[in-house]
Design a protein around this nucleic acid. Structure first.
Lengths: 146, 146
DNA sequence: TGATTCTCGACAAAACATATCGGGAAGAGA
DNA sequence: TCTCTTCCCGATATGTTTTGTCGAGAATCA
């Protein structure tokens, strides 16, 4: 039970995009984002397509093209990214799976409450928050690499 | 991203076991628990084996045998059940998967916080809480079936 | 001895995650 | 118009996890 690579990859690529578009509006190529963060390029392409459909990104074709944010990255929560890629993190099983009314009334409430707590945390952090944090760490933090 | 059938099945079977052993200590057969909750019997067998190894249940063989709680059901949290079956719900990817130190420092903290919030909720509810709730609902609640 | 019930390891089908492939469409510049 | 670049899209492949099933074995009781 852990976070999917999809969400991890996409989130890191978005942070990179935010860092590269501070001040400028110039689109950034998928290739560059993938290379910088060591993400399989064609896989990331798929993820960015989902983010574009979710209204997070805008694609620009041709020379000088690439991706820009469709809405400000400080309005893009981690939850929004996860939802676009893995679907809503719905811990409560569907009513169809949980056909016993006793289960829906008891355990169902627990799964729902836990899922809500999980989502709340993800909703409170944005792509820009992570980018900001990365800048601060890079400035005065540890400089050693692996 | 939803709760596994394993956890759901096991939890409902444990609630049923609690309801049937209130007052009496008599073991309850796996067959009866599985039938009452419409759980595949041989699958539940596997799950109960894990719960026994986790110190939640005790098995008794032979005629008049079955399962009893190894520790009081009001001390068995939903989290304990989930951990026994699906392993610790660790939302933060391992350091091996998350090899980029930038990711560990930024996104890693978010996954960890969200996972902790999730676990906290599950840790606060016990098998007995759910059994109690079911009793109350059954007493004066809705009696219609699907 | 024989019936009952849990115990255990292996196996199998289905679903899901993680990519990869190959062509297409739109935009920019010569 | 031609060509290059870059995003766009559907299909396919591969490996792992989940969800069970099967069959034999060991302990307990009458």
């Amino acid at each position: 039970m852990n976070v999917s690579s999809k969400s991890r990859y996409a989130l890191m690529a978005l942070v990179e995009l935010d860092l590269r578009t501070r001040g400028e509006q110039k689109p950034v190529r998928l290739t560059d984002l993938a290379a910088e963060r060591r993400i399989p390029e064609q896989y990331l392409e798929q993820l960015f397509a989902a983010l574009r459909r979710a209204g997070v990104l805008t694609g620009h074709r041709g020379v000088g093209g690439g991706f820009t944010f469709a809405r400000r990255p400080d309005r893009v929560s981690v939850l929004a990214v996860v939802e676009a890629l893995d679907g809503a993190p719905d811990f409560e099983p569907s009513a169809r799976e949980m056909s016993d009314p006793r289960e829906r009334a008891t355990a169902g409430a627990v799964w729902r409450a836990a899922g809500d707590a999980y989502q709340d945390v993800l909703a409170r952090t944005t792509v820009s928050d992570l980018a900001e944090r990365e800048l601060q760490l890079g400035a005065g933090g540890p400089t050693y690499e692996i």
